[in-house]
Simulated assay, not measured.
Amino acid sequence: MSNLSPPFTEETALAKVRAAEDAWNSRDPQRVALAYSENSEWRNRGQFLQGRDAIREFLTTKWNHELDYRLTKSLWSFTENRIAVRFQYEYHNEAGQWFRAYGNELWEFDDNGLMRRREASINDRPIQESERKFDWPAPGPRPAEEPGIPAIQ
């Protein structure tokens, strides 16, 4: 993702969001962590992380517990080096209970296009498997024909 560096235009901000979505849908902690600066700072719900190693460890744990994870992101707004995103993802736990998570992220990038700060607020809602919206083959990117986040929930 680092080839998309600030200052952002609408086109590059959209591309940055889609690149992030595709990376997270790979469920590869190493791949995802490379999009963040070495000393990146995170707030994820009530957790605070710093650095790529902590991010990689967090993601490894996350995807060991959030099974069949599928994510979609949508650009909310952007400035020169910041992007705001809303997202939804679905997963199930080891007991088979499905969830849809709703959230917002604030991203800040360094001059090389690496994310140096990420703040995420996320709420999980239990759903029935029959309520799932994201069922493309995973791991892997959301197919272009999949609509992503509907305008109104």
Rank of each mutant, 00 (worst) to 15 (best):
L59R: 07
P143F: 15
T72Y: 03
E11W: 10
T9L: 13
M115Y: 00
L4A: 05
E119P: 08
F99E: 07
N123K: 01
R45I: 15
N39F: 05
M115R: 05
T60D: 14
I83D: 09
D111G: 09
R125M: 13
F109Y: 08
Y69D: 12
E108G: 05
R132H: 12
P6T: 05
W42I: 01
G140V: 06
N39C: 10
H65F: 10
N25G: 03
T72S: 12
P6I: 12
R18Y: 14
G140T: 09
L14I: 03
S2C: 08
A33H: 03
L71T: 00
L114F: 06
L114I: 01
G148R: 11
D111Q: 10
W107L: 15
Y91L: 02
R27P: 10
Y89M: 05
K62R: 15
A23T: 10
N44Q: 15
P143N: 08
V17W: 06
P141M: 04
Y89E: 06
P126I: 12
P147L: 13
W136T: 01
L106R: 07
A23L: 12
E21L: 05
R27S: 04
I127R: 02
N39I: 13
S37V: 12
N25L: 14
G148F: 07
D135K: 02
W107D: 01
Y36F: 06
V17L: 00
D68Q: 07
Q88E: 09
W24A: 03
R100A: 03
R117E: 01
G103P: 06
G51C: 03
E66H: 07
G96M: 03
M1Q: 10
A120L: 06
L106S: 06
R142Y: 15
V85C: 02
Q50Y: 00
R56S: 05
N39A: 14
R31K: 13
P6Q: 09
R82E: 13
R82K: 15
S74I: 08
F109H: 03
L71K: 00
N112L: 09
